[in-house]
């Protein structure tokens, strides 16, 4: 399984902070994003944001970065700390 985390607006709009997703047919962050977006219209809209960022195992990653079984993948908006 892939552990999927959501933060800030993304978490709030989806109404959940984390889900587990099968690693079957998931090879990249983009493949996982597309699979999650297929949940329903709301998820499709929230996860379609062109400003969405992705971290794999707590490292900022690209959409074509590889994802495998056991990984932790987080989706979140641009950061606003400091």
């Amino acid at each position: 399984m892939i552990q999927v985390l959501f933060f800030a607006q993304i978490r709030e709009l989806l109404g959940t902070a984390n889900v587990e997703h099968t690693a079957d047919n998931i090879d990249t962050a983009e493949a996982l994003r597309v699979a999650l977006a297929a949940t329903d219209d709301k998820w499709a809209k929230v996860l379609a944001s062109d400003k969405l960022l992705v971290a794999i195992n707590q490292t900022m990653s690209q959409w074509d970065s590889p994802v495998k079984d056991g990984d932790e993948v987080a989706f979140f908006p641009p950061v606003t700390g400091g």
């Binding site: 933060f7 800030a8 607006q9 709030e12 979140f76 641009p78 950061v79 606003t80 700390g81 400091g82």
Partner: peptide, 18 residues
């Protein structure tokens, strides 16, 4: 760094835009 601010004020709750 993955921090996100949400402000409360005269217009209610608002996530800060990057």
């Amino acid at each position: 760094a993955p921090f996100w601010k949400r402000e409360a004020g005269d217009t209610g709750l608002k996530w800060v835009e990057a």
